[in-house]
Amino acid sequence: MRCGLFAAVLAGGLMLGGGAWAIGDPNEALADKAQESRAVAIGQQLRCLVCQNESIEDSGADLARDLRRLVRQQVAAGQSDEQVVQWLVARYGNFVRLSPPFEWSTVLLWGSPLVAVVVGGGIALFARQRRPVAPAPLDAAEQARLRSLLDT
């Protein structure tokens, strides 16, 4: 029983702490839990421009910390998720999105799985057609000849 209570308290503590743990410094977190989790969700889609392969929520870079703070300011000011992302895209371009939108400059990026399927399928079909066809069954004359050869 005591053990169970301890586990429940621990689990509760972990769940409460979850939001603040996403970033290094709990002081950065917004007081409003709902707003904080929105800010985390937004930050996870945004690239840290210093380290380039981390989101601003994961990065320890100075610029990422500034961007986290700006994202939180805008969330607290009542901006929608898309407005916050657009605000950053206006400054840093679509590069700041970890998931780039589908547009002309990203056609090749998003289309590459389709290209791979088409090219791979084409090669597979081509190879199938080139496979040697099974020889036609022997006709009566050939079977007679075969038999006579085997009998000798």
Partner: peptide, 8 residues
């Protein structure tokens, strides 16, 4: 710097 889109 952020308004200018400076990355570093």
């Amino acid at each position: 710097a952020i308004d200018w889109g400076v990355t570093g």
